[in-house]
Amino acid sequence: MFKLLRPSLLMLLVMTVITGVLYPLAVTGLAQAMFPRQADGSLIVRDGHVIGSRLIGQPFDDPRYFWGRPSATSPQPYNGASSSGSNLGPTNPALADAVRQRIAALRAADPGDTQPVPVDLVTASASGLDPEISPAAAQYQLARVARARHLDAEQVRRLVAAHTQGRWLGLFGEPRVNVLALNLALDAASH
């Protein structure tokens, strides 16, 4: 056993240098050269300030904005420093209560709307940072946003359509709308 100690330690050292130092440095170098924007977090910069990442959702609860998925991160929703899902089981009464509250909040922001609520708009995402909602969830909120901003519903509809991404190659994943990008476009259109 003792005779195996030396090769074990040396092998660990060599492999640590190869897989723990050279490999991540090589990936970092190549990534920064080939895809610098993505490698640095797909940041959205306005006037020299970072106002978010295209890939990380932000909390919205103003009726003038489209709302994203409910977020279970703590202490505040969409806490980028601590990603988390709710981990509530499907039969847990706490899940029913949370969904009831979310439906009530959506209805309070738009009392006239009695359509059934799309499921992704009242269920917490896995990461708590989901940047996207389904096109159904965007459509559900469309009239509210247009009214709150005194915009033409057709104009908002066009903005939503422009920010809707289909499946990759029409096959993989799900159609979706990037909430932060859409809300920034709304702000630009309202000015």
Partner: peptide
């Protein structure tokens, strides 16, 4: 989940949403 169906939540799959049990799932994966 039957729990959400009772609350008037739309869980049907359509061209506009994946539907189903979306608690703890990401929109892009459905």
């Amino acid at each position: 989940t039957p729990l959400l169906a009772h609350l008037g939540v739309d869980q049907h799959a359509s061209a506009l949403q994946a539907g189903g049990n979306m608690e703890g799932k990401e929109t892009r994966f459905g």
